[in-house]
Simulated assay, not measured.
Amino acid sequence: MKLSIVIFLCCLLLSSGAYAKSPRWLHHLAARNVGIQLRQDSSKASSRSSITSSVASKTSASESSSITSGIGSPVGEVSTTTVSSPATESDSTASSSISVDPRSPAGGVSMITPAITDSETYIKVGDYATFSWTYTSLIVSPSAVNVEAYCSVNDYYYPIAENLTVKDTSYVWNTSGYQETATIPLLVAEYTLYIYDASSNPSSIASPGHLAAYDNLNFGVYTPQPYTPLNEYQCATCSGSFSLIERNVLRGTLAISVIACLFTILFMIR
């Protein structure tokens, strides 16, 4: 009986010691498991962070590449601003102005062909008429020059050449071609040659240094008549009666004859 009691007490003591040690053992075990879990979570977080940063760097690199190349950039998410570089001196247009002394004379034209000193000039319709000239005292060059022939009979300016440059100082006028296509044909009359600034008009007054209208050349234009035999020719302006000079000569001759006859009769009577 005593032996069983002693065994029972030993069992109690052993069980109480194990019970006292079990919380501490369980605590260490739990702490160990928590440390392992924390280390695992930290390693997972660090790996996730490295993966995320790697993906972000790759994404930013691809986006920057897309922005740079302009290919594959997402629509509506990436906006680019183009900044134009400042224009260089060669690209800029320099505005220049010409200062003209108000005391300067207006520019003029000096005719070469036909010369102003030549005798009367006649142009036959069907021929080529040549006009050449030079500019004098011209400071501001006109952008275009017109050449026209003015006829006072019908008060019309016949265009010879239009929008010539200042370097074009000679022109050949094809009167035959003009006459065939003109709505107002050339008349047999006297004409005045005009050379003036196309941005102005023939009657305007030019500023100093600018081109003044030229109108100092007169020439005649005539139309050739078809050949007519002499025996069939009829003068439209001729008359069968005596002209005034012929009548005066005849009257003088008759008067002298009458006076001579009177003196002769008087001399014979005496």
Score class of each variant (00 low, 15 high):
V34S: 11
C261Q: 09
T130F: 12
V109Y: 01
R270E: 06
D168A: 05
A149Y: 01
S110Q: 10
L29S: 09
I265D: 04
L217Q: 00
T165N: 09
N231E: 15
N231A: 15
E180C: 04
Y191N: 01
S200V: 10
I205F: 14
I98R: 04
N146Y: 05
A20L: 05
S241D: 14
E77C: 07
H28D: 14
V140T: 03
S241M: 15
Q225S: 12
G70S: 07
Y227R: 06
A129Q: 00
V249F: 15
L186R: 01
S54R: 13
V6E: 03
S92P: 00
V172H: 02
A129T: 03
S170N: 06
Y214E: 00
T82P: 02
D197G: 02
A87H: 05
Y128S: 12
A189R: 04
Q225V: 13
G70F: 04
K167F: 15
G72C: 08
Y157H: 09
S200I: 12
V6G: 00
C10W: 08
R32F: 10
I5N: 06
W173E: 03
H27A: 12
A213C: 11
P74Y: 11
S170F: 06
A106F: 09
S16K: 02
C11V: 12
F219T: 02
Y157K: 03
F131D: 00
L26H: 06
I112M: 08
C11A: 14
S104D: 06
T134V: 15
H27G: 05
A30C: 08
A198Q: 04
P185R: 06
Y171Q: 01
P102Q: 07
I36E: 04
F219Q: 01
S97R: 06
S47N: 06
S132N: 11
A56V: 08
D127S: 11
L193M: 03
L193D: 00
N146L: 07
A94T: 07
T183G: 07
V140G: 02
T183Y: 09
A182L: 01
T93Q: 11
E246D: 07
W25N: 04
F131C: 07
M111Y: 08
T113Q: 13
L250V: 11
Q225F: 11
L230I: 14
I269H: 05
Y156M: 02
T165E: 11
L211F: 12
A94I: 12
G76H: 03
